[in-house]
């Protein structure tokens, strides 16, 4: 028998220790963002530099990820493509968040018929397949990255509205909101200055997870030809353009952007879930 006691089940205080997976993912994301920002300086080739003497090159010393059907360097294209591929979901989420938070907060604050009406509208949006809705919007307004972002923002807004409404209801039931009302603070002021900032940690965690989904959706649209247009090197578009090579045995033009999309989405989700856990921990 040992005299010392080891507290095996003692709760570990989670401060900075997020674990190896989190750190790896965060590191990877930082790397991708750096790559996107520094692309003009670190990319070995221009993204649209055509070289007919080096078509379908395999990955190697000259071309890290090989080249595509026009002899363009895949690595450089992935680096440059990171810009459009990352900014797209960011814009889409920004737009969807403004709309969703507005709707959700209004529904929670006002209740009654406003809440019912907004709930019905969001229900209809939910019932309608997101991608189908987006394709419909694109059919009306024409294809292109801006329309794709706008359409996806409209499709994402109800999701964010539902989430906002639920956390706003919980927040509104806390008496500090009543205290502001008794002090004579106007309703819009309470919402903008006090309610939304108090919801923002929970919202932020949710948005990080949604970012991965948004990136995937935008890549999907580009793959289908509705989003980014050639000669852009948006990742979804790259996957689509590389398809022709698969039959001839050239996997890299498809695999490289595809893997990057998958890796970024997985990394964002792992970081996002951990982050929202952390942010939602209510201080005692």
């Amino acid at each position: 028998m040992s005299t010392s006691t080891t507290l095996i089940n003692a709760p570990r205080k989670r401060t900075m220790g997020y674990g190896a997976a989190f750190n790896t993912c965060l590191g990877f994301l930082v790397l991708v963002i750096l790559g996107a920002v520094l692309a003009p300086w670190i990319a070995p080739y221009a993204p649209d530099e055509i070289d007919f003497s080096a078509i379908w090159t395999s990955p190697g010393a000259g071309h890290l990820f090989g080249t595509d059907q026009l002899g363009r360097d895949i690595f450089s294209r992935v680096l440059f493509g990171a810009r459009e591929s990352l900014i797209g979901p960011l814009l889409l989420l920004a737009l969807a968040t403004v709309l969703g938070v507005l709707i959700g907060t209004l529904a929670a604050w006002h209740g009654g018929w406003v809440d019912t009406l907004l709930a019905r509208i969001t229900d209809v949006m939910f019932a309608f397949p997101g991608l189908l809705f987006v394709v419909l919007v694109i059919a009306v307004f024409g294809k292109g990255p801006a329309t794709a972002i706008l359409a996806l923002a409209l499709a994402y807004a109800p999701v964010i509205a539902k989430f906002t409404r639920s956390i706003a209801l919980a927040e509104l039931s806390r008496p500090y909101i009543d205290a502001y009302r008794i002090q004579g603070v106007s309703a819009p002021m309470i919402c903008l200055r006090y309610l939304i900032p108090n919801m923002s940690p929970a919202l932020l965690g949710y948005l990080v997870v949604l970012f991965g989904e948004g990136l995937m959706s935008l890549a999907t649209l580009s793959f289908l030809g509705f989003g980014a247009q050639p000669p852009s090197s948006e990742w979804g578009l790259m996957v689509q353009e590389g398809q022709a090579g698969i039959i001839q045995g050239h996997l890299w033009p498809t695999l490289a952007p595809g893997l990057v999309i998958a890796a970024v989405v997985v990394a964002v989700n792992i970081v996002g879930v951990r982050l929202s856990d952390q942010l939602n921990v209510k201080k005692p």
Binding site: R174, Y176, A179, Y194, N198
Partner: peptide, 8 residues
């Protein structure tokens, strides 16, 4: 008392 104060 806690709920009636804005934690921010």
């Amino acid at each position: 008392p806690y709920g009636s104060l804005d934690r921010r």
